[in-house]
Structure formats: C-alpha cells, structure tokens
Design a protein around this nucleic acid. Structure first.
Lengths: 107, 107
DNA sequence: TATATTTGCAACCATATAGTTGCATATTAA
DNA sequence: TTAATATGCAACTATATGGTTGCAAATATA
C-alpha cells in the first residue's frame, strides 16, 4: 500500500478511528470486537474494518481466544508521528526567527 | 467538511502533500505555485489541489501578487497534532506501567 | 444436540480522493 | 498590440474509503 508513517497518519486521520483507538487506550485492557462495537453507532462490520486499518498501522494488536478476538491499543507507532512533527516544532512558534535558526545551522 | 484536527491530519496523511509542505517549509520563503509544481512530477493542477487542501488545514498561506500566488508554509496548526499526540505519549514507552499511572491519577 | 454468540468474508453502495486534460482569463513582457 | 506566463475552473477518470447488509463458520451454552 504505502509507507509506514503514511499508514499511521491515514489511520488516525479518521475521527471514528481515533475514537476507537482512544477507547481502547483508556480501556486499559484487551476488548473483544463486539464489545468495542457496542460503544459505537456504526455496525460491527464498520468497526471491524476500522480496527483492521488500525492493526495494519500497528496501533492495535489482536489476540484470538476461542471465538473472540481481543483488541488492545498499542500507541508506540505514534512515536513515528512525533518524530515527523519534531522537525517542524522549531518553526511553529516564531516561524521566521526559527527558520533563520535552522538555515543558520545548515550553513 | 469536518473538524480541525481531522482536516490537519488528513492533509498531512498524503505523502505528496507532506513533500509539498516540507518543500515550502525549507524554502524559507513564499513561492508561486508554478515554481512549486516544477519540483514535482505531477501536473500543476495536481499540485494546486494539494496546496488548496493544505491551505484549508491552515498549513499554507497564500498571498496574491499580480498574476502569481505566493504560497508560504505555516507549521502552527501542527501544534494541534502535537497536543493530540501528547495524551498518548504517556503510554507509548511502557504501555502497561504508564497506563496504570494514568488510571491511578484518575482514581 | 440444538441454539445462541462472535466473528470473517463477500458483495454492494455512495462519496471522497488523487490525479488528469482542456480551456478561459488575467497579468506581464516584447 | 501581440505573445507569453501564471493561474483558476470545470469535467472527467480511476481508485480508495467508510459504510452497509447477508450469510457461513466456528465456538460456547442450554
């Protein structure tokens, strides 16, 4: 499909997916899909699809037990987003001044 | 369309858009659209569309002068992404331990 | 064994997205 | 004035996306 950071950013760019991810993070435990989908208005299949996208981005890990699939949030891939952001951090407070700093360092 | 953070995340979720944005940031100056599009393989119209998306996310500001439209990067909206990330930062190093910290604070 | 529950798979739909091309228009340069 | 340049607008295309429904299969419960 595409590179890792793109997969991660695309995954969290959808508001429903951010909600699902958040619910899993604060749940502080692995939850089966049906139980997750009960918290949302869209269909179970809709939630399943979102979870798959999150899983492909590494943001959710799935562990099958019997007929249930327990989903757990894994926030680690967000580090990559943080690393991507880091570069721009130097510019966002005082754009012009910091840009000059950056150019100065390069020279 | 949607809320702000979603607009910003969607804008940077596209790799070409990240490249355009990056080019504008390091350019350290406002650039007319044609000049930007020369740096990319896709058509000028393609670039224009991407710039529009970036503009709607607040990541690019456009200033018309004569027949030219000068585009300048504005990294400030990325602060919102940083703020969104911040919450998950406490979990991504030692997920279980930090999750307990978070739950402890809440209790 | 019969029934209920959790899930995956597949097909389908509407809309969004990333890109293209063609053309009209405004501004600048010859 | 004529020609070149920078752009916007519109139409179009292909594919991705977010969602749905129906059904089959595996597991658990009565």
């Amino acid at each position: 499909m595409q590179d890792n950071i793109t997969r991660i950013l695309k995954a969290v760019a959808d508001p429903t997916r951010r909600e699902i991810f958040h619910a899993l993070v604060v749940a502080a435990t692995a939850l089966p899909i049906t139980q997750i989908s009960n918290q949302f208005e869209i269909s179970r299949q809709g939630v399943t699809k979102h979870i798959k996208t999150l899983e492909e981005a590494g943001l959710v890990e799935i562990n099958s037990q019997g007929r249930e699939r327990f989903c757990m949030a894994n926030p680690k891939p967000l580090k990559q987003v943080n690393r991507w952001l880091k570069f721009y951090e130097q510019f966002w407070d005082d754009a012009i001044g910091n840009l000059e700093d950056y150019l100065g360092q390069k020279a």
